[in-house]
């Protein structure tokens, strides 16, 4: 993205979090990065079929927002959702196994890459029809209010979702009902293959729409976990304290194409180079080291994540394929699919 498309400067990170918590945000980003790289390798080996949408380059958004949440908060993600599943505690082995169609998959092979769900961690699913889950996140937030908890719901979505009706229906209802929901736009500048700026009436597809729903525009550097975390913390606190919804636009970039089949050739080389230079991982590592975090600690985080990913991949590869005996289970609550009596 050229700078002239950003009207407001992204927020500056304040680095208000403690060092330990920030090291954990680094770990969160590294785990996702290595998982996603491995998912790509497995696709190249034809072990991951179908499609997959990787978050390589966008890790800071998941890390920054997740660090602002409680375990009992609800998270809804898109088909580019591996990062969010892992960030909410979904076991890597089960995630790989799901991508590979194994019986031990997170959903026993019934969902696949685009639908990772880990309800135990209140990760309420990955949704592959653009925009729909914003309305569903509202429901979880409404339920939290009704039940008298102070849980918050978060919906992650891409820039492309800001042009679909469900986005606007969801924002209006959330604002009208003052729901504790945080809408986080991961603006990676491309709606699938088309620059979002070519198909959107405003420069910032989410932030510039906020005022239509009485919300302040919030635009952050999505490649900076601290900046994301700060904005998310503010939004989550506002939601939890009864202040209603927020719309946060985190500007970021995916290093690869839209999905596994897309080499991303429609993006100018210089743009890609510019964003690779802003890769959130080395950037964050450098910042942490500059603030006195010891390199060996960060090295160990990387090595641990590498080990975790390797182990998870091998366990998933060794698992048996999804069992056709379960093909018709879990259509209805009585456990199977029968439509007749």
């Amino acid at each position: 993205m050229s700078n002239d498309t950003v009207k407001r400067p992204p927020r500056e990170a304040e680095g208000s979090r403690g060092a330990e918590a920030r090291v954990e945000m680094y770990r969160a980003q590294v785990r996702v990065r290595l998982f996603e790289k491995e998912a790509y390798n497995l696709f190249l080996q034809n072990l991951v079929k179908g499609t997959s949408h990787l978050a390589i380059g966008q890790e800071a958004v998941a890390a920054g927002v997740s660090a602002a949440l409680r375990p009992d908060d609800y998270v809804f993600a898109t088909y580019r959702g591996h990062a969010h599943a892992i960030s909410r505690g979904a076991p890597m082995t089960a995630c790989f196994a799901e991508l590979m169609g194994r019986e031990s998959g997170l959903m026993a092979g019934k969902g696949g890459s685009m639908h990772l769900t880990y309800a135990k961690g209140n990760f309420m699913g990955s949704y592959a029809i653009v925009g729909a889950h914003l309305t569903i996140a509202n429901g979880a937030a409404w339920s939290a209010v009704y039940r008298g908890t102070d849980q918050v719901a978060v919906a992650f979505f891409g820039d492309g979702a800001t042009n679909i009706g469900a986005f606007h229906e969801a924002l209006n209802l959330a604002a009208t009902w003052k729901l504790p929901v945080v809408f986080v736009c991961e603006n990676n500048l491309y709606m699938e293959y088309t620059p979002i700026s070519q198909v959107t009436a405003v420069a910032q597809p989410a932030a510039d729409r906020a005022s239509a729903y009485g919300l302040p525009p919030v635009l952050v550097d999505g490649n900076d976990a601290d900046a994301v975390h700060e904005a998310a913390t503010e939004a989550v606190e506002r939601a939890r304290s009864g202040g209603g919804p927020s719309l946060v636009e985190a500007v970021t970039y995916r290093h690869g194409g839209h999905s596994r089949a897309d080499p991303g050739k429609y993006r100018p080389d210089e743009e890609v180079a510019e964003w690779l230079a802003k890769d959130p991982l080395p950037r964050y590592r450098t910042r942490l080291q500059g603030e006195g975090v010891e390199a060996p600690l960060l090295d160990r985080i990387e090595a641990d994540a590498r080990d975790e990913v390797d182990r998870a991949r091998e366990e998933a590869k060794a698992a048996p394929p999804a069992d056709p005996a379960h093909l018709e289970t879990e259509v209805f609550s009585y456990g199977e699919s029968s439509w007749r009596r």
């Binding site: 309420m124 309305t135 509202n138 979880a140 409404w142 469900a166 229906e169 209802l173």
Partner: peptide
Amino acid sequence: SEQAILGAAMGAAMTG
């Protein structure tokens, strides 16, 4: 907002 209505119902149903 029929999508918002059913989305709200769905999200509420999955959370109690």
